[in-house]
Design a protein around this nucleic acid. Sequence first.
DNA 1: ACTTTTGTCAACCAAATGGTTAAACTAAAT
DNA 2: ATTTAGTTTAACCATTTGGTTGACAAAAGT
Lengths: 205, 205
Amino acid sequence: MNKAKNTTTESEILNAAKRIFQRKGMVGARMQEIADEAGINKAMLHYYYRSKQLLFEAVFKKAFLLLAPQLNDILNSDDSICDKIKSFTHNYISFVIKHPYLPNFIIQELNRNPEFIKDLMSERHFPTIEKFKKQVAIKVAEGIIRPIKAEQLFINIMALNIFPFIGAPLLKGFINVNDKTYKQLLEERKTEVASFIINAIKIEQ
Amino acid sequence: MNKAKNTTTESEILNAAKRIFQRKGMVGARMQEIADEAGINKAMLHYYYRSKQLLFEAVFKKAFLLLAPQLNDILNSDDSICDKIKSFTHNYISFVIKHPYLPNFIIQELNRNPEFIKDLMSERHFPTIEKFKKQVAIKVAEGIIRPIKAEQLFINIMALNIFPFIGAPLLKGFINVNDKTYKQLLEERKTEVASFIINAIKIEQ
DNA sequence: ACTTTTGTCAACCAAATGGTTAAACTAAAT
DNA sequence: ATTTAGTTTAACCATTTGGTTGACAAAAGT
């Protein structure tokens, strides 16, 4: 049997499932719809992945592993806090503009099943903020940055980067702009967010 | 026929639907589950609200109207920018700690059906940021606050306040804390977020 | 007293949905 | 050439689900 054939079928299923799950979520997605998207028979989904739940988990983990290592690398690099903030905001926003369904998909499914985070935490490359915490504590002690808990700073960085994508429909309504103008605002945020954060924590001499 | 009886039934349905929809979302919720939660027959849901879609819309609009006027009042008050930031963050975080499913519910459903925001925008009390935009422009021109587009500042305020609730499962995993500790962090944010934002925009003399 | 309207319920229905099966097909191994 | 193992498909199945119906009860109107 052609080895190439079944691997393409298997990965074709995964890609189709990714598109459908990310658009509709686990509960909203239909197995038939995924099969149609992949252009194959529905029974193949079960042949390769057994059940909807397992197919979903394969998609979810793959999506999560697209983002987690990026974050982990930056948190544990030897860069300064400022450089970490700059590189994370620029990288993350650039990446997510290309994959707009990703953050909402992950957040939505984790809210549906919060226990799932424990599975992810035991995997390699799950981000840790230990090094970042030490860096912040040192700079606060040195009087370089304003007193702030590393956890709060971390939450702020994540919020400012992720929320504009997840909250897009709401924010577009509130600030009353069309899709094109909103995309423009997101582009600006690649640099805007980092300077906002740095201004917030830096002590002027 | 007892007038009190049917009005309580109707509102009992709405309350039960609110609980189920907010926990499970539109697609995850089951009409039978809502009926059980309300302790009445499933046919009553259709008797009072015709269809799942209409029941959902009633719940959604009610939930939205719990938050929108709060925001609108603050945006259009005569307070200074700083006071607006302080009162919004404090009010919003206090309110949402009591209704933890609310922000995720609204954001999730707006992402499922982004067109729905147009319905909401035509309602009274839909927040407008015009006054806030003027205030920011003036203070920037006067050199009181750092140059920033009001839209970006608004997105930042919303992000810093809303995301910690929506992203809770993910953030708890990343910063590796239990529910109790995380709740403590949220409490701190009632004041922490406002000073973070004000530090970010204020020009030191 | 009677009719009409409104509210409530158990039983029912058609469509959708995740999942299974048995047979057909394909290509490599013997 | 025949066997063998993996791959693919159409048809099928049991369950779930939103929604309907018809009978019945309780008010309200007359």
